[in-house]
């Protein structure tokens, strides 16, 4: 169960600011030792914890509009921590941490059944189809705080949890119990040149993420900010990644609606 002082780390991505430059993807790959291959043309075989989608309003010129949407793991809470992937894993290789709200993945526990991939509607879970290999010399630049993964296991965005651990260690050394907001930030957040990504504790009213979306705790964490939305809200995944957009069509692209459901549904 969620304790009183437990954290709920989450992310707010301002799509009005995102330029689709891909810095977040690059930073994530470098930070988390994500393997790559010489031929990465088939994106369904790639591993990318952070993936930037390009959305369009499908209108002819000159009304054409585009929007870039970065998609990390949504760290769904589901109902009482039953996120789509956690409850299905047969070997308890993935876990919802009630203290941080982070969905973890234990690589050495995962045996590659891929049920979690099937269960995740966001495609954030990816499989290591090949052995991870780095070009000669590049292995020296691997991040020592993140374990590399072996062939045959599933991996996904961890909200750079190793940084949280490091920040906590630092605070402990300095005799503090709590860490400051800026002490734990994900690699993508820091890499975004447009400042589109904000990261913090959704349970802490002092944190920027809380102030930006004003999550309604009584209403399954739905944002009170009318510009904010979550992807596939209607499925009940209760995600912790929020998006901001001033454009109605972008907000509407975040979920599925019947034709009969009015435009005002997601005002």
């Amino acid at each position: 169960m969620e304790k009183e002082n437990s954290k709920k780390f989450g992310m707010v991505i301002d799509l009005d600011k995102c330029t689709g430059c891909g810095s977040c993807m690059v930073a994530c790959m470098a930070e988390n030792n994500i393997p790559f291959r010489e031929d990465e043309t088939d994106k369904l075989l790639s591993v990318s914890w952070m993936h930037v989608y390009r959305l369009t309003n499908v209108k002819p010129f000159p009304d054409t509009e585009e929007c870039y949407l970065p998609r990390p793991c949504q760290h769904c809470e589901g109902h009482h921590g039953h996120s789509p992937c956690v409850s299905v894993c047969p070997a308890t290789a993935t876990d919802y941490d009630m203290d941080t709200g982070i969905v973890s993945q234990i690589y050495t526990r995962c045996f590659g059944c891929r049920y979690c991939m099937a269960a995740c509607p966001y495609h954030v879970r990816q499989f290591n189809w090949w052995d991870p290999l780095w070009p000669d010399g590049m292995e020296k630049s691997l991040n020592p705080n993140v374990s590399v993964r072996m062939r045959g296991v599933v991996e996904k965005c961890s909200f750079c949890i190793h940084r949280y651990q490091l920040a906590k260690d630092q605070a402990y050394m300095e005799g503090r119990r709590e860490i400051e907001e800026d002490e734990y930030q994900t690699a993508c957040t820091q890499a975004c040149p447009a400042g589109a990504i904000t990261f913090g504790d959704l349970n802490n009213p002092k944190h920027a993420v809380y102030q930006m979306v004003k999550p309604d705790k009584k209403n399954g964490g739905k944002p009170k900010n009318p510009k904010a939305f979550r992807l596939l809200e209607r499925l009940g995944t209760n995600a912790k990644v929020y998006y901001l957009s001033s454009r109605e069509w972008v907000r509407r692209a975040g979920d599925n609606y019947l034709k009969t459901e009015g435009q005002a549904k997601h005002a």
Binding site: V88, T92, C110, F111
Partner: peptide, 25 residues
């Protein structure tokens, strides 16, 4: 079918009783 066949016994050893796949196994 599993990515790490040598670990297939984890489904029994570290069984998550809430998973349908565990029950299947």
């Amino acid at each position: 079918d599993v990515g790490q066949p040598l670990r297939a016994w984890f489904i029994f050893w570290h069984a998550n009783v809430h998973s349908m796949l565990t029950e299947v196994a």
